[in-house]
């Protein structure tokens, strides 16, 4: 079987923040009522922790993102996504849910930089409040980046993971590279 490729094909840009293709990632969309304790119990029973509103548990490869009151993005290895769909479908059998493998629908970036450089690069493109107190590691922000939707979280203070739709991966890479040009540091955060 041919290998899957990411839309970024391993791209990397080194500015005052390094922007790189985070590689293949498994993503499974789950629509379900997260306020329903049966759903949460079933998920826990199958080994899936449910993050609180606006939060994430785990990380890329193994975790879950809170997307909305009735939507989670389950993170797993890319080649385990179909199996994860099957596990979830079985665990939630009989309940009103929608499970879909969307691993190929998105591009994932890893942004690294010293101090608050990563926050600064994101703040050039997103209206989100990026002060550390407002978005500490563990929090997820779905927002606008330039002219397209995106979501990001801080894995640590100097590293963020960013997800956008596959078709605009090139646009986002160009945007991020542009605003991470050395010499354009703001020094604000």
């Amino acid at each position: 079987m041919p290998e899957s490729v990411t839309p970024l094909e391993g791209a990397i840009y080194s500015g005052f923040v390094t922007i790189m293709d985070a590689g293949l990632a498994g993503m499974v969309l789950l629509r379900a009522d997260l306020g329903d304790s049966d759903v949460v119990l079933a998920l826990k029973g199958a080994g899936f922790d449910v993050p609180g509103a606006g939060e994430l548990v785990g990380d890329l490869g193994n975790g879950a993102l809170w997307m909305s009151p009735d939507e989670l993005m389950i993170l797993c290895a890319h080649d385990e996504a179909e199996a994860t769909v099957a596990t979830l479908t079985e665990a939630l059998g009989g309940m009103h849910v929608l499970v879909a493998n969307v691993s190929d629908a998105r591009a994932v970036f890893r942004l690294t930089g010293d101090g608050s450089a990563v926050r600064e690069v994101l703040a050039k493109l997103s209206p989100a409040d990026l002060r550390r107190d407002s978005l500490p590691p563990g929090g997820v922000r779905r927002t606008r980046l330039g002219q397209v939707p995106a979501a990001f979280w801080f894995a640590s203070d100097d590293e963020a993971v960013l997800i956008c739709f596959r078709s605009v991966a090139g646009y986002i890479l160009d945007l991020l590279s542009k605003v991470a040009t050395p010499g354009s540091e703001v020094g604000h955060f």
């Binding site: 909305s68 209206p127 606008r144």
Partner: peptide, 12 residues
């Protein structure tokens, strides 16, 4: 009211 985020109008 669903996610508690103070949204900028450009996010709405």
């Amino acid at each position: 009211p669903y996610c508690g985020i103070r949204c900028d109008e450009t996010e709405l």
